[in-house]
Simulated scan of single mutants.
Amino acid sequence: MYKLIEPEVAGGLGEQTQMDNSFFPPLIKNLHYEFEGWLGNDILESFPCYIVTEKLRREIEFEKLTGINFDNVLISKSDTFLDLYPNRELPNFFWAKINGEPHKDDFFITDKNVLAISEKAYSVLKNYNIDQADIEDLE
Rank of each mutant, 00 (worst) to 15 (best):
I43K: 10
V124G: 05
Y33P: 10
F81Q: 04
L44H: 11
V73M: 06
F93G: 07
Y33Q: 12
G100H: 08
E45K: 13
L138R: 15
L115G: 01
L44M: 11
Y122E: 03
D111V: 06
I43E: 12
T66W: 14
E63M: 15
T80M: 05
P48N: 15
A133C: 09
N72I: 05
L115A: 03
F70R: 08
W95Y: 07
N69D: 15
C49F: 12
E6D: 04
F23V: 09
E36I: 05
E36W: 06
Q132D: 09
N99P: 08
D20C: 01
L44T: 07
A133Q: 06
F108T: 10
K64T: 14
L44Y: 09
K77C: 00
E89K: 14
F107M: 13
A96I: 09
L56V: 14
N21F: 00
I75V: 05
T80R: 09
Y85C: 05
S76I: 02
N30V: 10
G11M: 00
R88L: 12
P7D: 01
S78K: 02
F24S: 15
F81M: 01
L31Q: 07
T53F: 04
D79S: 10
K97N: 11
E45H: 08
G12M: 04
K104Y: 10
R58E: 15
N92M: 10
T80I: 02
D83H: 03
L4T: 00
F108S: 10
P26V: 13
H32C: 10
E119P: 03
F35H: 09
Q132I: 07
N87L: 15
N87Q: 14
E6Q: 02
F81P: 03
I75R: 04
M19E: 00
E8N: 04
D111G: 06
L74K: 06
V73Q: 05
G37Y: 07
E119L: 01
Y122P: 03
F24P: 12
